[in-house]
Design a protein around this nucleic acid. Structure first.
Length: 260
DNA sequence: ATGCCTTGTCGCACAAGA
């Protein structure tokens, strides 16, 4: 089973790009972030024509997440538990059957948190604490679980071409990175890094200042595998070439192949 | 130091992104 995640930065603006990539990559499950659409406005027909079931958790104008799945999910849950007053659409998870068991897949759009020192940064850290609590509860089931998405965290210096350029950024703050480590230490495997321990891996290049041309990238899109999912890890990759196409997202797809 | 681009919005500039 191939599972992918991609922050597409606007599903309507990226529709042609997304269809092209889906036909090439042929993932069984796709987690999307920043769909920037309400549920009713999501162009579901274009994805259904490719054989996908479409589950969205959208909102107007910004944020919004979705899960596309070749097999119809057994169950779908929307929103990250822990704060009923949180209006941001940043979390959706689905139980999806493979040929050998069920995997729970979450599409995550973790808050950016900039600028630091504001309520945006405290919202990010609070959201990460809620994610940790939810992940801890899910791990207790001891089932295959994949947390996939735009985590908006640069885990290590090697995950940025120019780490010094990010020292004042919410993505690279000690608190953000510590929360990331706490989450991973619950028992997750960072799939892409596990497959390529020493490689230069980036998933985002800013639109501005020629970041792509200068390879001024960062790795912030991640796939965390529970022990039961990690046992089945066959391969992982980053579809970097998507960034060089016409009208690209500033993020590129990341994927894992699980033997299930 | 700031903006650099891009998307979406009851657009005609601005918020949000990272």
């Amino acid at each position: 089973m191939k599972i992918a995640t991609w922050n597409i930065n606007g599903v309507k603006a990226r529709l042609d790009n997304a269809v092209t990539w889906l036909k090439e990559a042929e993932p069984d499950v796709v987690c999307l972030q920043e769909i920037k659409s309400v549920d009713e406005g999501f162009p579901r027909g274009a994805f259904e024509d490719l054989g996908y079931n479409v589950e969205t958790h959208g909102q107007k104008g910004f944020n919004g997440v979705a899960i596309l799945s070749k097999r119809k999910p057994d169950e779908v849950r929307r929103g990250l538990p822990g704060n009923d007053g949180d209006e941001h659409a940043r979390y959706i998870e689905a139980d999806i059957a493979g040929d050998h068991g069920v995997v729970t897949v979450a599409s995550i759009y973790l808050p950016n948190g900039n600028p630091i020192g504001t309520e945006k940064f405290s919202y990010k850290l609070a959201w990460m604490q809620r994610l940790e609590a939810h992940a801890r509860a899910r791990l207790a089931h001891e089932m295959p679980l994949v947390l996939a998405g735009d985590f908006n965290v640069i885990p290590e210096p090697m995950d940025a071409r120019r780490p010094d350029a990010w020292v004042s950024d919410a993505l690279y703050q000690p608190e953000s990175r510590a929360m990331w480590r706490t989450l991973v230490a619950l028992g997750f495997t960072d799939a892409t890094r596990a497959c390529f321990p020493l490689d230069e891996l980036y998933t985002f290049w800013d639109y501005q200042a020629g970041a792509w041309q200068k390879n001024h990238g960062i790795r912030i899109d991640h796939m965390l595998l529970s022990p039961q999912a990690a046992d089945r890890l066959r391969a992982s990759g980053i579809d970097k070439d998507v960034r060089a196409r016409e009208k690209p997202s500033d993020h590129v797809p990341v994927w894992v192949e699980l033997g299930m």
